[in-house]
Amino acid sequence: MDIDAAARSVLVPFVAQNGRRLGARVRYYLQLWRARNSFREYGQRYPNPLLFVAGLPKSGTSWLESMLASYPGYQYVTIPEAVAYELRTGGSHDFDLPADTFERFEDALVVSKLHVHGSRHNAQLLHEADVPYVVLYRDLRDVAVSHYFYVRRTPWHPEYEDYRGLDVEEGLLHFGRTLLPEFVDWMRSWRERREPQQSIELRYEDLLDDAVGEFRHVASHFGLDASPATIERIVTEHRFATMSNGRSRGEQDEQSFARKGVAGDWQNHFTDAAKELFKTHAGQALIDFGYESDIHW
């Protein structure tokens, strides 16, 4: 590597990370201002001004967030602490919410999507604030594939240097040795601690198979308009072809956030070595969460 290339490999991620950190704080205050203005106009329509989604990374959380924000008045709001934590550590899947998180959203119409885990702290905050929420997860093998392609095209990501020189097999093995056990813990933490009357579980695969039915369930949980016409309109507006500039589901674009939009893509990439590693770290979890009936896959 020449000197200029070496300098760029350090400078580009540094500039990207700091730009994103600053932008996140500015965007947060703008989002919150809009959410409070919206509350004054639309707040009386909704029983729940805050819609909270705790999603496993790469599990369709942005898709669900976008559909929820289609209801008049609701605004995306992302707290800057979560962004800063992700930039510092490589992910927010083990992030604990600030104690005043839900106080910040008073008198505002907010859709908040975060990758926070189901720690005692986070579960208790949601319980005390009486905030309804959805826990969204995905087959961990597909999460690994999606994570590999996502990090390789994201210079600001702290793991970019770890992944950019790896082929798919090497990338999946690296994920299996590093993040996979933490993501298994993420799924188990929410299943163990979520409040059943206050929350629902949702699988990305079920949302793909029956977007209308699953989103109707989510809308009803949040007390939103779940009429057939409304649900059909929102789902149609957020179908994969619309969000990927016309690509059909399954048609890959490695540079797009909406890369492929399918379930089971792991079967196109997993080698025997990757299978064995994932069976070791996530075999029982895949059974417990309904992705496999036994360890022989």
Rank of each mutant, 00 (worst) to 15 (best):
W186T: 05
S146A: 13
L277K: 09
M187C: 15
A282T: 06
Y137K: 07
D162T: 14
A6C: 08
E81Y: 03
L125N: 09
N245D: 15
G55Q: 02
R21A: 15
P196T: 00
F175C: 08
D2A: 15
G283I: 13
L30R: 15
D225W: 06
T89R: 11
S146D: 01
I231Q: 04
L208A: 10
A16N: 10
L166H: 07
I234F: 01
A263L: 01
R152P: 03
D272S: 15
E251V: 14
H115K: 10
H115D: 02
E205H: 09
S70I: 02
A285W: 00
F175W: 09
E237G: 15
F278A: 08
L180R: 03
G246H: 04
D96E: 15
R216E: 06
E81S: 06
V131Q: 00
Y291R: 12
T230V: 14
Y28R: 14
R40N: 11
V77H: 08
G91W: 09
E65F: 02
D142M: 05
D130A: 12
Y46K: 01
A82I: 10
E65I: 00
L87S: 00
K260R: 15
E86W: 03
R188S: 02
H93K: 03
Q255W: 03
F270Y: 14
Q255T: 15
A226E: 11
V12T: 13
R88K: 13
F257N: 07
F183H: 14
I3R: 13
R36V: 06
Q267A: 13
P181N: 11
Y28E: 00
E201T: 12
E103T: 12
W266H: 07
R20V: 05
R247W: 08
A5F: 02
D294P: 11
A16M: 04
E159P: 00
L125F: 01
Q124R: 14
R138W: 00
T230L: 10
L97F: 08
R141S: 04
I231F: 04
S9T: 12
Y160P: 00
T78R: 08
P80I: 04
L109V: 01
Y74G: 05
V184L: 13
G165H: 11
L126V: 11
V262P: 01
V151R: 01
D96C: 09
